[in-house]
Design a protein around this nucleic acid. Sequence first.
RNA 1: GGGUGCUUAGCUCAGCGGUAGAGCACUACCUUCACACGGUAGUGGUCACAGGUUCGAACCCUGUAGCACCCACCA
Length: 955
Amino acid sequence: MIDKSFSPSAVEQRWYQRWESAGYFKSSAQDARPPYSIQLPPPNVTGTLHMGHAFQQTLMDALIRYHRMRGFNSNWVVGTDHAGIATQIVVERQLEAEGNSRRDLGREKFVERVWQWKQQSGSTITRQMRRMGASANWEYADTEGQKAGYFTMDAKMSRAVTEVFVRLHEEGLIYRGKRLVNWDPVLGTAVSDLEVDSEEEDGKIWEICYPLEDRSGFISVATTRPETMLGDVAVAVSPKDERYSKLIGKKVRLPLTARPIPIIADDYVDPAFGTGAVKITPGHDFNDYQVWQRHKAELLDLFSIFTLDAKIINDSVAAAGPLWQDYVAARETGGKTGPVGTQPLASDLGIPNKYFGLDRFEARKQIVSDLRAENLLVSEKPYKLRVPRSGRTGAIVEPMLTFQWFVKMEGMARDGLEVVKRGEVKFFPEHWTATYNHWLENIQDWCISRQLWWGHQIPAWYDAEGNIYVARTEEEARQKAKGKALKRDPDVLDTWFSSQLVPFSSLGWPEKTPDLEKFLPSDVLVTGNDIIFFWVARMIMATRHFTGKVPFRHVYINAIVRDAEGEKMSKSKGNTIDPLDLIDGISFDKLLEKSTQGLLKGEHRERIEKYIKGHYPNGIPAFGADAVRFTFASLASFSITLNFDLGRCEGYRNFCNKLWNATRFVLMNTEDKDCGQDEKAAVKLSDWDRWIVSRLQRTEAEVAQGFDEYRFDNAAASLYKFVWDEYCDWYVEMAKNQLTDPDQAVQRGTRRTLVRVLETSLRLAHPIIPFVTEELWQKIAPLAGKKGETIMLQPYPKSQPEKIDEALEQKIAVSTAVVNAGRSLSSEAKVIHRNASFIVSGEPSTSTRAAVTTFMRNSQFVERLPATDSPVKLVDRHAVMLNIKVDPAAERERLSKEIARLEAQIAQTEGKLANESFVAKAPPKVVEEFRGRLAEFRSALGKLKEQHEKLTARA
RNA sequence: GGGUGCUUAGCUCAGCGGUAGAGCACUACCUUCACACGGUAGUGGUCACAGGUUCGAACCCUGUAGCACCCACCA
């Protein structure tokens, strides 16, 4: 016999290992069954599992298990991502803690060090995924033999990256150019538009006076970044602005530098804003850059006033960073086309020595103060502005003029829009299509080069003249360069450049593999809305471009997991939940320790402590993976956020235990007994037996619909309701009675139904709660005449509509209603139900008779109720009387209440039916429904009134 | 500035044109032989607000308010 309650931990570990070692998760292109595949959004290889992962992986695993059981060749392609910036930062911090830096180490040693870290921590997240029960194809595309799927930097995946880069370059879709890009001065790298978040912050706006060169007056400009004035090349005004029309073409003397710059007219300027005059700094502002492009004939060439770590340039900038070293070298050799091109000296630009080497914010202070001293500062006002910050470091992004590699997006974007428009790729929920479309319609070229060390190094080489050779190997580049000395581009590719290839690179591309043929496109991508641009759109474009296929047919955008109050989960709030803590449980002390360790700011500690004391005064109990999964499924509607409620998790843990105990009951009553496996043995099935089978078919249909529509909440709710409310609450109770029937055929039929329905329910629930269902199925299956090593590979229950019996369900509904009436009566009369005796009138059906015998032990059926004062409830054709002496006054009052309620309902329904337009215009079926309802109400009212009058007469 | 989503019981959420639902919490009763991680019965809602369409609106339309998120170059 199984334990009295379900304890998940032992069961989970045991089964997962068995499943994996038995190879149940594997899949092969040779398998002739129809394919069903899902690509896992590859998590950061050195990361740990968070609630978002746990959530989407639960859904993916449920889908994979569901389809596997339905006979699909299911392939959950998994892998991990090298996560360039994120991983490099982590290792740099480690070095920092050791008093080292990556520059001290040098590139080669640093990259070695990152690999070490990857080997050391790389298995954490995949181990955690296994704890969630992920039936992923771990050995697939696993060239490193680590049973973690592919790794985006392994040899095979890297080969595809190089191939794609070279081909795009050959097609003219990748180019190198000196552009203004978003620059993270802390990391010293370019980042893409998407990696910049701008938040509104409190800042200041200054109005600065620029004197006209001819001393005839001045023009004042407004700026939020006065330090950039050193890089001004013009002042722009609106061509429509009459105030300034006379000044256009004149020159002003740029304060602090004495450099003359022209006043130009450009539509970009809004005359109504600020002073109507804008300083133009094309080297450090994207708008100004565009203005410059329109006027470049009359302006200075582009230049930078900041070093790459955002300090004011000086005349020997060699110390500032590698790109500048290249620049200096180029300048010294007289080269005009070196890696960063030409750049005037700081002194040529009139930048005073005193600013050399000042950090941009220091420079700002100094410049404002100097302007004030010179009486050129008109005003300084508080101002709210949007500050662009690097998503990774939080550093304020500096638009910086650098050489970078770009991908031309326009053509691929058009195609990406087309395939979605044609419905070849569909979003669930559908409204995400708009987000996707909007981005692609306004797409910019993608800056793919990063000045980092961890990542795929760009396959481009330069000769001394600055000619570029893009090639698959250095060998190939050398051939192209005809023996010239070459230096490889030191930059690496944006991580997303490799992730976008995953749908086909993981399947063996550029080889023409059977896998590509079989598993591309995959069936559904399950991912967060935050990476629709970063990843989803780019996968669609890249996969289309290189394979002509879409990467996946469906995109299910999962909700963002929040805490129970709907707050974003963040370490500093202390409201993050580790999915593993939900599975295993954690004590209050440990949770507190875990949440407050490694904090940077002491001030958060108090807040976190308060949060944890408030929310988890007793820590978190161990819910087990199944409960966590069921919770995720139950909350997975199409809403944009998912507020994770521990209360619900507890409820679903209870559900797992309920299932466990239902099985326990069934085992107690069926093991070593005749369960009707022998089809020839006589079997009598009651209405209740046939009813639960009918309900099961409905449930099967509902669950299938839930999965098909990605409405996991509906699938879960349906399962919950069936198992708890129908099987346990009604059928099992009825079965108890049937099992005492002297007729062996009845007993046999009951046992068979108990076992078969339970066995089917376990299979039905398996995709969502794999562990408990496996454990229980092993016990129940033999009794149902099923054999198999695992529930995982059993056929999934399919609804048989012919077994749905509508009439029977209605009949049973009357039976349950009679029982419920009895329960209400005893409860209202404060009589302990099992001691209560009832009198039931109306010819009972066999199912009602059985139900009454089971649930209302001391009952008798009569033709007419006795004329007593006892409380009565009406159900269909039945009247249920609680056979007790009762205070007639109290009973009168109770009846009056019911009468009043009925009368109100009658009035409402009558009103409706009296409405001519309702009767005329509403569908006849609806009208009939209301008429029927009214008749029922009236008949019930009549009986109640009769009862009431009897009481009144006797009073 | 543009866009998307949300606002339903104390809490977390379903329902999206025909008598307001679930889980949790709460109240009362029940240690009954599968389960107290249980059973039974209850309490609790002018479905954000205002108009409109309709025989009928939580559900469709318009507007308002609040919340959340995304996009955008106003110095």
